[in-house]
Design a protein around this nucleic acid. Structure first.
Lengths: 338, 338
DNA sequence: GTGAAAGCGCTAACAT
DNA sequence: ATGTTAGCGCTTTCAC
């Protein structure tokens, strides 16, 4: 493996000059620069970024803490899209991404912070961490520049990006109300996600605006998964047969709810309207196609990377980015005013 | 940021001893070890993996060269699943994954090898690279330990993992033959994928075994995408109305073919049977559900990581892993023997 | 059992 | 415009 020392020897200059020439400094004679470039090429030189990182105290890497790179969570292409967005921005920069292993029992051995510190990542993007994760605050309180996705925290070196979940849920429920529904159930995600609180708030807000009283019995919690949606819908519909519409906090739960409803003899959308959240790929492939609140997952990732970049280059004018959502009307909802 | 030097000073020992103590060497007095551990904790010490990498000449990182982390390719959850498999194995090791940016124009600036060398990754896993990629051979010929997914190359430090594509395609086509089909078309992937050649071979083999003559006109190339499948099916069915079944080299193309067929007035499976390849998530959500050849994508990734691990730890008994496929019979194929 | 010293490959004052 | 020197934080001979 050639080093700048080798180049220096062959080119008959000092390592300093080689370093400067290779890094494009201006104070190098054009001839020596050429000579050095040529020798570097001949010796098939490749800079050692590790050595550079050590002395510069910058690794030019961004850590990625995504929970859910597991066998089970493939249905939910949320993560991939976010990742694609992150990657898209990062590939235009001189940073590389390093994936940390957050799943499995290893989590107990080393905290995220330890992982980040040891690897000396310059910054970190965190996605899918539960609010009750013991290590969440550790990262936030460390001085590692950090961007959170869907967790509304901010400080000097912590930014976050999220969508307007309150308004999103409001749109969904208002849509149902507009279609004549009055008995509207909600299948929310688990309580350890900030988005759950916000979407619940939106649900209440929409009902309130339409002067519909919200009934606690109409609200039940799932865990964002298809199976939990199925179970939740089963309970909800069995106990409250007067319900004509359900708003679900995730498409996966909505899909689960759809199959539960079908099992119970409901026709969708004739007997029961369902609105999901996310607009995952499957939403437009199930039958009937799912009406849902679309969030731009790719952009979520892209903006997260951008916010981190701002943090890393000290251009942090803003520490927060809230994206808009959009109601996508498909076949799972129907107007019942006759 | 505390260093072992700080610890040494506070604990009243030399850096050597600190290093040895922290790394669990046996020749350290139990008392000094305790003392050092305690000081390290008090000072909130975190080892600098970069410094260690520099001196050890090992970065403990694995490079990931996946093409297709783009906005478009989200439909195809192939990559995620493979990634999940890789991650699953790697999280049990002391390596971290670094994602390289292979998309975009940046590809021209720096070759994969340069990327790998600069970052000093200990090994690399390559997925989704086209056979005509100018840099493919560069990596293989470099001395970086490397595992290829679905590209059958091997050498001292190159392994590969793939599925039995010939047999897989054979199973698919044999299934159609068993159901009474004789005029069987094939929509293959583009020619720059090894799997395309192999699946074509399997197609021919199955026909040959059943003594059915293969007609060049029945074979058309797509590009693995839904849209290309749609276009290919359009052409195939328009020119050869006698075709009663199509084998597609990817589920995405099969899904495209399904919608093209429907547009042309074919009922599936009554008028046309279709078999896909991959068993992606969507396969069981489209209607009718797609009969397909399942490959275990998670395992593909897992085994790739494992093979690389073998390479890195010199336990490379074998440099090749071929996984089996499985025919999943769903609703897009039907028996036409009456 | 512990320490002194060298060095991994690079950058960055500080001369000259 | 170029070289000398020091040092980033760590591991590892080699002495003692």
């Amino acid at each position: 493996m050639t080093t700048i020392k080798d180049i220096a020897r062959v080119a008959g200059v000092s390592v300093t000059t080689v370093s400067r020439a290779l890094n494009g400094y201006s104070d190098v004679n054009e001839d020596t620069r050429k000579k050095i470039a040529q020798v570097a090429k001949e010796l098939n030189y490749s800079p050692n970024s590790i050595a550079r990182s050590l002395v510069m105290k910058k690794s030019k890497t961004i850590g990625l803490l995504v929970s859910g790179f597991t066998k089970e969570s493939v249905k939910d292409n949320f993560i991939v899209e976010v990742l694609a967005g992150i990657n898209d921005f990062v590939s235009g920069s001189d940073y590389d991404l390093v994936l940390f292993n957050t799943n499995s029992s290893k989590q107990r051995e080393k905290t995220y912070t330890q992982l980040c510190k040891e690897r000396r990542v310059d910054g970190v993007i965190i996605q899918g961490i539960r609010t009750d994760d013991p290590y969440l605050h550790e990262v936030v309180e460390s001085d590692i520049p950090c961007v959170l996705i869907d967790i509304p925290l901010e400080s000097t070196n912590v930014s976050h990006v999220t969508t307007d979940n309150v308004l999103g849920a409001e749109k969904a429920v208002r849509h149902l109300i507009d279609q004549g529904h009055r008995n509207i159930g909600m299948i929310n995600g688990h309580e350890f996600a900030f988005v759950s609180q916000q979407r619940l708030e939106g649900y209440h807000a929409a009902l309130h605006q339409a002067q519909i009283e919200s009934k606690p019995a109409y609200i039940v919690n799932g865990a964002f998964t298809e199976e939990s949606g199925r179970a939740a819908a089963h309970g909800l519909l069995s106990s409250n047969p007067e319900i004509t519409a359900i708003f679900c906090s995730s498409d996966l739960m909505a899909i689960g709810a759809m199959s539960a409803a079908k099992e119970l003899g409901f026709r969708i959308p004739e007997d029961l309207s369902i609105v999901g959240y996310d607009d995952i790929l499957l939403a437009s492939y199930v039958s009937p196609k799912l009406t849902t609140i679309q969030q731009n997952k790719f952009q979520l990732g892209y903006e997260a990377a951008k916010l981190l970049w701002d943090l890393l280059t000290n251009q942090s004018e803003t520490h927060r980015m809230v994206l808009e959502t959009k109601l996508i009307e498909r076949g799972s909802t129907i107007c019942i005013t006759e």
